[in-house]
Design a protein around this nucleic acid. Sequence first.
RNA 1: GACUCGGUAGCUCAGCUGGAUAGAGCAACGGCCUUCUAAGCCGUCGGUCGGGGGUUCGAAUCCCUUCCGAGUCGCCA
Length: 567
Amino acid sequence: MINIIKNTIKKELELFLYNTFNEKIEVTVEKPKNQKMGDISIPVFSAVKVLRKPLPQVVEIISEEVSKSKYANFFDEINKVSGFINISLNKSEFSKSVVNEVKKTENYGESDFGQGKTIVMDYSSPNIAKPFSVGHLRSTVIGNAIGNILEKLNYKVIRINHLGDFGTQFGKIIYAYLNYGDKKKVEENPIEELMKLYVDFHERAKNDPSIEDKAREIFKDLEQGKPEYVKLWEHFREVSLEEYMKVYHVLGVKFDSYNGEAFYNDKMQAIVEELKEKDLLVKDQGAMIVSLSENLPPALIQKSDGSTLYITRDLAALFYRKNTYNFDEVLYVVGNEQKLHFTQLREVVKRMGYHYYEDIHHINFGLVLQDGKKMATRKGKIVKLMDVLNEATKLSLDYINEKNPSLENKEDIAQKVGVSAIIFNDLKNYRANDIEFNLSDMVNFVGQTGPYLQYTSVRISSIIEENTIDQDNIDYELYTSSASFELIKTIDEYPEVLIKAKEEYSPSILAKYLLTLASYFNTYYAQEKVMVEDIIERNTKLFLISIVRDILDDGMKLLGMQVIKKM
RNA sequence: GACUCGGUAGCUCAGCUGGAUAGAGCAACGGCCUUCUAAGCCGUCGGUCGGGGGUUCGAAUCCCUUCCGAGUCGCCA
């Protein structure tokens, strides 16, 4: 609502200035820094400059025009403070229109922003035969949250888990397994042992670099379908996926497809052919490359031994997805360190003559650092996500036992709180920032955290309980207290927040918004009593807080958190 | 060395399409539970917005330069 008012004022003023002075002046209409300065603010400095008139005169002219706005009935007062024109909204009128908007929208916050367009998302994508680490958490929860937000905005979302189930690493693992692996141990504890073998391989390769070549050879044979290797590979893939499914179940994450890199094994020769046909492929130092612009290193398409590389598979996957889903956008939720790769991918696609290279977006995110350094799998420094989730669950159970020992289903709720805390912790900051792996931060339950949101929602649910709310028996004059009005204004922002989160592909925008909303509610809660005698007043307040609760719950669900009624 | 991203309060971050005294949370300190869940609320303390130039009526925000950190840079993914 307030956005509509702001945009209207902007257009009205720009038109007025053009008609009156024949000048095209960009008018800024913004939210004042301080709420004491009103609800809408218009700095007039730019107009002063263009019109070459004294500031007070310009302020006079513009504020006069503002008072004639189409939405003037929403204005309480228009104040002129130096170079600013500040508008205070009529609280009850504004509240009424916001609340009416909520009432008439079945699923508040939704919009047709996406117009049913298709977005393919590639996220999570763990590497087979490695434990699901905290590093994979980021891609998984960021991708999941963005996908949920997109759906709310009427996009059709295809969620793909592009499993890292192929590549030279399998040559290494198979080499290690066949040469010095303990078959029995692998049987008992597959992921753990395969991981050890992988780490071990790199240790041995330091002393004997020739085994790197042997691994490459094995991979090449695997790629060409040598039955012995394929069988092993299938087994490793299967046991790994089983393990991952447990994690996904706990996180509440689902995918439409688990087609990983191997799925494209038979689709890569066509890419190589096409590149050849289009005269893009060059032989260089035995390898086949596509050279790109000056500042961009060339893309390696085929190794000198004839086997393919990551980018070849991503090209195959891209074209397959375009043909299969005919996407309008494709999002790759992959870490910062692959930025160059996706720049190259786009560039190759562009050079191949496909216009949709513009629709390829790398949704990059920061590294999980340990002691300020990248966590490296090859050295075996890995923190298993399951362990972190269990730790968080345990901690939240301790909290419950301390705060609310008589709570029913304690274990279940502890898991919902703990896991959501981890998810929220990962989403609350801008995704491209690196994060230091810090367990005590991850399971912190005080302040700007997941449990704070859940707690706020639970408090509201606890007030509402069995009360029925009559939406037609509302006294809008009661929404004029500062605590109420802050809630109203924040409620009003929800639909725009979701759109902004989509435009920046950044769940943190929603996360921060929910914290603001929860904080305003908690202030309200401390100031106003809801369950009062007066029926209209009680009903009016119950309705307000129920809207807040619904948004909190909806937002938390979008982020992939669990919504609870008691804690 | 080249390219990319970052540097804002002791810590974690927001603000960055230029606008009014730079905002939160954590930590520290002080208040608030006979009244709807204190995982909360209120207050105090805390900042040369890395440094230096420049553009502008106005710069944390734009430009240049410099320092610091991270990532990437042909046969890993």
